[in-house]
Design a protein around this nucleic acid. Structure first.
Length: 427
RNA sequence: GGAGAGAUGGCUGAGCGGUUGAAAGCACCGGUCUUGAAAACCGGCAGCCCUUCGCGGGGCUCGUGAGUUCGAAUCUCACUCUCUCCGCCA
């Protein structure tokens, strides 16, 4: 959430307007926000003045009663005042709610280093690692490979559930597990993250905390007859782990590597990636998430992205890192790198990780602060997260990049100890 | 599913409807003493919002929301969560 007081600062306001422009968002109702804020303040002050008077007289009444004096005059006056306060209170509350409603949908201010642009065409490729793989035969897609190896079964998943689900079977299921363990071990043991397996359902408050609500409500699954939602990413439960808390500065940074299933409705993507594992309603992901000191967040953002890249390097998969333009990144983010893996089946780079710095945007919504060492007012932490990696898409990348002419799959060296075999052959 | 108990500051834990934003202890910070440390003693120590250049002033917050009252941590109702016992169950 954007801090309303920042918007009252001329310099910040114009920078924020420029950021909206970079995101290709209409800054049209920004002036309404400012007006509402003035109205809110006025209503609040009015109410508080009345209350101050009430408190004062109430104290007098208390004193008189204790001294067994007559307070009937004050009492009858206060009856009226009490009614007035009720009206003023409602007024102030409404003004506050109106402002909140506008404020909660304002996007984060993009970092200066983020390029302007409205969609992926304006993203900037920062580096490319490895060469796109070429084959002496015609490369198959992962769903062709998976079905002929009998490790992916989309048809039966369609029967049991519906479109965009799959059964992973045999060595395919084993490969998924191997990838999960490889990623979790790497992050926990080499990169110093704390392992976590969060709840796969959260309440609405958690969704607001990360900024998934109210804007992206239609993207998640709501569970009927409960106040719960299936998580679209472990980012939601893990970011809210410290919801409403004040941490100690010396406890920062707090780094989590969270494994979870993720559930996305994929509303609005009908017809996109309908084949294969690329866009499923349910997939596994290892999510890296950090609570960091504001002064360190860009440094840590770089580190976190490197940690995600490390998985791709270990698996020897060709990939590239892009800096997203303002319009292509999520409204919550101040800056975002995408990692895109090369998929021979599509002859294209596809997103496999998205590493974002949210600065204090989520921390304000979720009220996550830290107390500076040696005292002082609590400050908001910065939050970061990034996939490390999306497991299903990694499995796709392994199948497609390690396919052999006979349709078998070689297992990447880094995974062999987790798999117990060095290749997947038709059974 | 049935029965009961509870939720207060960083933690433990008091709290008759009216100087209780909240006793006390612990933790923490500063000081005295000490060669240094410990102990002891003294002092400080919640967050948010409005207002002020600043000193300061004001309001709100005792799980959440509503209600009663001139006035609620304290009374009423609803909800949430935690714990104990019984039943059922992976």
């Amino acid at each position: 959430m954007i801090y309303i007081k920042n918007l009252e600062n001329e310099e910040y306001l114009s920078a924020y307007k420029a950021s909206l422009e970079k995101r290709n968002v209409d800054p049209g109702n920004l002036h309404i926000v400012l007006e509402k804020n003035v109205a809110r303040r006025k209503a609040l002050t009015e109410m508080e003045q009345k209350k101050a008077y009430q408190n004062k007289v109430s104290e007098v009444i208390g004193q008189k009663k204790r001294n067994k004096e007559d307070a009937s005059q004050e009492l009858s006056e206060m009856q009226a005042v009490s009614q007035e306060i009720k009206a003023l209170e409602k007024h102030a509350k409404d003004a506050e709610a109106e402002l909140q409603e506008l404020l909660i949908v304002l996007p984060n201010k993009a970092h200066d280093s983020v390029p302007a642009g409205k969609d992926e065409a304006a993203n900037v490729v920062l580096k490319t690692v490895g060469e796109p793989k070429t084959f002496s035969f015609s490369a198959k897609t992962h769903d062709e490979l998976g079905q002929s190896l009998k490790i992916l079964d989309f048809d039966r998943a369609g029967k049991v559930t519906g479109a965009r689900f799959t059964f992973l079977l045999g060595t395919g299921a084993r490969l998924e597990r191997a990838l999960i363990n490889f990623m979790m071990d790497t992050h926990a043991q080499k990169h110093g993250y704390r392992e976590a397996i969060p709840p796969y359902m959260v309440n609405a408050q958690a969704m607001y905390g990360t900024g998934n609500f109210p804007k992206f409500k239609e993207d998640v699954f709501a569970l009927e007859n409960t106040p719960y939602y299936l998580i679209p990413t472990a980012e939601v439960p893990v970011t809210n782990y410290y919801n409403g808390e004040i941490l100690n500065e010396e406890d920062l940074p707090q780094k989590f590597a969270a494994f979870s299933a993720c559930f996305r409705s994929e509303a609005g993507s009908y017809g996109k990636d309908t084949k294969g594992l690329i866009r499923q309603h349910q997939f596994h992901k290892v999510e890296l998430m950090c609570f960091v000191h504001p002064d360190k967040s860009y440094e840590e953002h770089e580190k976190l992205t490197n940690h995600a890249e490390e998985i791709l390097k270990q698996l020897e998969l060709p990939y590239r890192r892009s800096l997203l333009c303002a319009g292509d990144m999520s409204p919550n983010a101040a800056k975002c790198f995408d990692l895109e893996v090369w998929l021979p089946g599509q002859s294209a780079y596809r997103e496999i990780s998205s590493c974002s710095n949210f600065e204090d945007y989520q921390a304000r919504r979720a009220e996550i602060r830290f107390r500076p060492t040696g005292g002082g007012k609590p400050q908001y932490v910065h939050t970061l997260n990034g996939s490390g990696l999306a497991v299903g898409r990694t499995l796709v990348a392994v199948l497609e990049n390690y396919q052999q002419e006979d349709g078998s799959i070689k297992i990447p060296k880094a995974l062999q100890s987790y798999m117990g075999v060095s290749e997947i052959r038709p059974s």
